[in-house]
């Protein structure tokens, strides 16, 4: 009876451990089989040359050096970065303006807030299909507006110069409600007496924004910047329906390069190596953003 030698306290801990793992069993199986195992397997794949035909072939990790000299890889990183540089500042500022306006004493607040949320309910596929029409150079509403204002009609998705701003603007529209909600939660936690005190000291509306709201909102703004950056590195669905990587490769972001290499060219080993590069880049950018932004905000 070995168990009798174990003190009662430990026995209780062991019993609790046993019952806890019964509760954890389903989720641990799912995590293990569909998350951890694929990750390890993907890492193993990334050290092989692997096409659809034939056996995987260990190539000494040659995929990684190849990555560093592949101009398609650098190009996709550049495109993703350009897109991120357009999307992140826009959503950070636009969502803050809308949240600030919504936080004020205005009527129909609830209704307005509900309307901002409608776009996030819809899938990127629906958004992409709708904006395919909005941006369409022949019959789209944007072309119509430009025509009406006396400009030439242009299809924004058809030209290399306009396609990324068009995608960024669409995504801002799509996810606005999500970021507005995060900001509103932050704004509502600022005590009203701070504004009153500033008022009495003679601050005008702009001063309130500049010297009360923005400083107190810094942690939230930081959160939004980090979340938006991570999200912008993941853009994929809309590109599938709207541009398919085009025009002339102008929207081959990193996720699209992975899709292309793995599922159109069947180079699984190389694609897996790019996914790990993507992972490392997203992680690095997040850490850098956290550090830089936090440092600048310390007095």
């Amino acid at each position: 009876m070995a168990l009798n030698l174990v003190p009662a306290k430990h026995r209780r801990f062991l019993a609790e451990t046993r019952s806890a793992y019964l509760f954890l069993l389903p989720s641990l199986i799912i995590f293990g089989v569909f998350m951890i195992y694929p990750m390890l397997y993907g890492f193993w794949i990334s050290f092989h040359r692997w096409s659809l035909l034939g056996e995987p072939f260990f190539n000494n990790g040659a995929n990684y050096p190849k990555l560093l000299t592949d101009k398609n890889f650098w190009n996709s990183l550049r495109i993703t970065t350009v897109y991120t540089a357009m999307f992140v500042p826009s959503i950070t500022v636009v969502a803050l303006i809308v949240a600030g306006a919504l936080n004020g004493p205005i009527r129909f607040k609830g209704l307005l807030r509900s309307l901002y949320f409608v776009p996030i309910m819809s899938s990127a596929i629906i958004v992409g299909l709708c904006f395919e029409w909005i941006y369409n150079g022949e019959v789209g509403v944007l072309a119509f507006l430009m025509d009406w204002l006396g400009f030439p009609k242009v299809g924004l998705l058809g030209s290399k110069q306009t396609v990324l701003p068009a995608l960024a603007a669409m995504t801002v529209w799509w996810v606005l409600g999500y970021y507005v909600t995060i900001y509103l939660a932050g704004l509502q936690s600022i005590p009203a007496h701070l504004y009153e005190a500033a008022r009495i000291d003679g601050a005008n509306g702009w001063h309130l924004v500049r010297y009360v709201t923005v400083p107190l909102m810094r942690p939230i703004i930081l959160l939004v910047i980090v979340l938006a950056t991570i999200a912008s590195f993941k853009i994929f669905d809309a590109i599938y329906v709207m541009t398919y990587g085009g025009p002339a490769g102008a929207t081959i972001v990193m996720t699209w390069l992975i899709f292309q290499e793995a599922f159109l060219n069947y180079k699984f080993g190389y694609a897996a190596a790019i996914t790990y590069a993507l992972f490392v880049i997203v992680l690095a950018i997040t850490l850098i953003e956290l550090r830089v932004l936090r440092a600048r905000y310390e007095y």
Binding site: M39, G42, I45, K234, A262, V282
Partner: peptide, 10 residues
């Protein structure tokens, strides 16, 4: 923090 793409290929 793991991007979906990392598990999709495997």
């Amino acid at each position: 923090i793991i991007p979906e793409q990392v598990t999709i290929v495997p």
